[in-house]
Design a protein around this nucleic acid. Structure first.
Length: 210
DNA sequence: ACTTCGATGCTCT
DNA sequence: GAGCATCGAAGTA
């Protein structure tokens, strides 16, 4: 398809995960099944994790040991496990440094029927509005995807056609963490109905006067 | 082997 | 908004 940008290469994820996450918003996550069917969704919510300076990463013993899992080359798919659920991320920074972008919510574009088959839900809007939900809806097997390059045929990312203007990006605190909760490292598409429901409504991009 | 915890999801009120 | 299911990993023994 002419005009379609090529998948983002692993080198795109070599740097600071915060701007990398911001730039991913509005892009497209593309899943290609073994049979060739395409399941795609617009990325409407992402978070950055950056261990050297991130309380949510370095806090206590929690991440200290797990960081070894993220000490892999930048631009590599990996899965974090929380509460028994797999969360899809891309490793960032140079190899050996723990940092990542977490994909938290999608707006389904192609393959809605297949997604619903993978993950039956009552309300359609609950299909991919959470980090583990989208993993299930896309039929991702962590054992199969983990360690693969971010531009792999079976799962890759397309950048947004044009950078999203700041007015369309809501910057808030990250979801579900204790330490580091004030860092404005969560990016959502403003007003998009597919953003995760558990999200804080606090908008850190706007400083209240009082 | 057992305990605790968590970057979640689901099902109620 | 609250309570519970859930399971991989770490720490302890």
């Amino acid at each position: 398809m002419p005009g379609m940008p090529p998948p983002l290469p692993p080198s795109h994820f070599r740097g600071d995960p915060v701007p990398v996450a911001r730039a991913l918003l509005g892009g497209t996550l593309v899943r290609v099944l073994d049979g060739g069917e395409r399941l795609t969704g617009r990325i409407v919510e992402v978070e950055a994790y950056d261990c050297p300076r991130d309380p949510a990463c370095t806090a206590g013993r929690f991440h200290a040991a797990r960081s070894a899992e993220m000490a892999i080359p930048p631009g590599t798919w990996l899965f974090w496990t929380a509460h028994g659920h797999p969360l899809l991320q891309v490793a960032c920074r140079p190899e050996g440094v723990s940092a990542s972008v977490l994909i938290r919510a999608l707006e389904p574009l192609e393959g809605l029927g297949q997604m619903l088959s993978f993950r039956p839900v009552i309300r359609e809007r609950d299909l991919t509005n959470g980090p583990a939900k989208l993993v299930y809806a896309l039929g991702l097997n962590p054992a199969q995807i983990s360690g693969r390059p971010v531009n792999a045929p079976e799962l890759h990312l397309l950048p947004p056609p044009a950078p999203l203007p700041d007015e369309m990006v809501e910057v808030t605190a990250r979801v579900g963490i204790r330490e580091g909760r004030t860092l404005p490292w969560r990016f959502t598409m403003r007003g998009n109905p597919w953003v995760s429901p558990a999200a804080p409504s606090m908008d850190l991009s706007v400083t209240p006067d009082g």
